[in-house]
Design a protein around this nucleic acid. Structure first.
Lengths: 351, 351
DNA sequence: CTGAAAGCGCTTACAG
DNA sequence: CTGAAAGCGCTTACAG
């Protein structure tokens, strides 16, 4: 690791520049208190030597710990979706805490904006060095983004994006394209009537994410000149009874529906309805590898799940912050997750 | 990071045990030259304090660099499959070289066993601390595994496995299950004749990997009581002309083939044949997200590609070695890759 | 079998 | 604006 009697690193730079290593250190970290002249000289030498600081030594000497705060929804009884990103975050934490990173996690309730705001206050109160956030409440997240920008603190969005924000990076699904794939998967099950039901089970069906998916969904049929008859159903209440009622009505009107596409993880409610009504043959496509969906996939009632590696999103988000803060590496501003197709046959090995 | 006046780490252990830190260090690393009595005492204290050595300090002080050697096939003009694991290996290298790991890569020619043996000699000659190997030549790889075991050197197999070897871990696809999925994907395209053609384009069609895939493939139809008529075709010569000739014959005998399953990445040759013969409507399923296959996927001639994240395999294999060597972390003995389904619609985001 | 001392390549007060 | 010195938590000869 060492050449003969030669110095290396800051010592060698100091020797060449005829200064002390303290001054070299100042230049490396862009601290002031160095005359422009020596600064120039040192910078030239750094460049010439293509000097790369030894991170091991740097972290050891500084004792600095980067504090990262995480703000994501808590897993509900309805769905364990958010357990996955959390797992990825914890995996990243285990890997990097050795190198001086500490992580604190705040969970909010997706049905209660106040819990989000409360957590945001906590994030501001303590002095964190970076944030990993699921910006579920758009306006509130924007407000926090402004705060981060003012304070020059990096933040990463995961799972859903808000356009044009000063985030370090966004990690999540390419929604339009996943909707597009959704159509293709529905098309497998279509025969004569060509009737497709698109179901939004959420209070937020108007928001950007859902409309992206819908656009993609329609686009496939149009582009590929597949004749189709799209029926759209927005269900605001997410409990099973409301979903069942709405579906019953839809089937009364359109008994010849051949495929159903559900734009989020609540596809299991539709699956339960189809099972109850003996309509398991209808092609059913939805999102997310959550526990309940896995069961219906196994039973063959859900035909395809579209997934976006939620665990990986959490892991990758953390690592991006770590790379940025600790290693000063550049990170991708946008990182789209792949669009995974999970079926009964490959679900056993999906992660 | 520090408590008041308290010592921590080896110093604190030394203080409590009434020995020098050198002795503590000896015990931590299980070096001999410590009386059983002091050893016991120190071990007790380590346990009591739940002491975790500071890796940063350890690596910095020792200056030790772990040397890992990689032995994988080189990408050929035919297929760039092996470029992906290499990319993953390089990504891992970039991440961990900061922490004292050096990587040397040896590439062999899949069509020339001698190049494999030659590389193996090189691996033995230099003193490496661990190996990442694609055991394409089974007997030769076994022989090298024996050598590693003798020398107590860890090695990781990727992409294909050899049963019952003393490897640190194996990272690769669950082959049986991927063949099983292959049937399901073929079944989408089958209608009346139920004739499926299974094509092996390799000289090694008899080996364990291919037979696993085949077993899985058949198993789906049997288990799900799908009526099917399986025609099997082994093509030994991998050039396009040989493939085309063999396929032509098969179609002469069975003009009503509805689906074709190719058990490796050479599905592009079959795609080319189908395109030429105006048989693009036949359901075509194969393996691996290599350049040529992507093109036929885009054209809609290949319907599905089954993939096993080759880049991830390389990355994960390196990280397993690193975790084992440097961090002394336990690693999974077998790590199955997920079985990814790639279609025209999601290929853009596949990695 | 054991310990004192130097050193890994940085950073951090502190003094000037 | 600059430098000498101590220190981060380990490891490594070397001496006994």
């Amino acid at each position: 690791m060492k050449e003969k009697g030669k110095l290396s690193g800051v010592k060698e730079i100091a020797r060449r520049a005829n200064v002390s290593i303290a001054t070299v250190d100042r230049v490396i970290h862009n601290r002031n208190g160095v005359s422009p002249k020596t600064k120039k000289k040192i910078e030239a030498i750094i460049k010439e030597l293509n000097y790369q600081p030894n991170i091991l030594a740097s972290r050891l000497a500084s004792g600095k710990v980067f504090r990262i705060a995480v703000l994501i929804p808590k897993g509900s009884e309805m769905t364990d979706f958010w357990d996955a990103p959390l797992k990825g975050i914890e995996r990243a934490e285990a890997e990097i805490k050795q190198y001086g990173v500490s992580v604190e996690t705040f969970l909010f309730d997706l049905n209660d904006k106040a819990t989000f705001l409360q957590a945001v206050d906590a994030l501001r109160a303590k002095s964190y060095d970076g944030f990993l956030i699921a910006p579920s409440f758009v306006e509130e997240a924007k407000e926090f983004a402004r705060y981060c920008q003012e304070q020059s603190l990096p933040f990463v969005f995961i799972d859903s994006n808000i356009e044009n924000q000063p985030s370090l990076s966004y990690i999540g699904p390419p929604l339009f394209q996943s909707g597009y794939l959704g159509s293709r998967l529905c098309a497998f099950g279509m025969g004569t009537s060509n009737k497709v039901l698109l179901v939004n089970i959420t209070r937020e069906s108007g928001n950007y994410n859902y409309s992206q998916i819908e656009e993609g969904f329609k686009s496939y049929f149009v582009e590929n000149k597949v004749p189709f008859d799209l029926i759209k159903l927005n269900i605001e209440e997410t409990d099973y009874e409301s979903v069942a009622l709405a579906l019953k009505k839809a089937f009364l009107q359109h008994p010849d529906i051949e495929a159903i596409f559900v734009t989020n993880s609540r596809v299991f409610s539709v699956a339960r309805f189809l099972e109850t009504m003996d309509k398991a043959h209808i092609q059913l496509v939805g999102y997310d590898f959550v526990k309940q969906n896995q069961d219906y996939l196994k039973k063959g009632i859900i035909d395809f799940l579209i997934c976006h590696k939620p665990e990986e999103q959490g892991y990758k988000g953390m690592m991006n912050l770590y790379h940025h803060l600790s290693l000063k590496l550049p990170v991708d501003k946008v990182y789209y997750m792949p669009i995974d197709i999970v079926t009964k046959e490959n679900q056993e090995y999906y992660r």
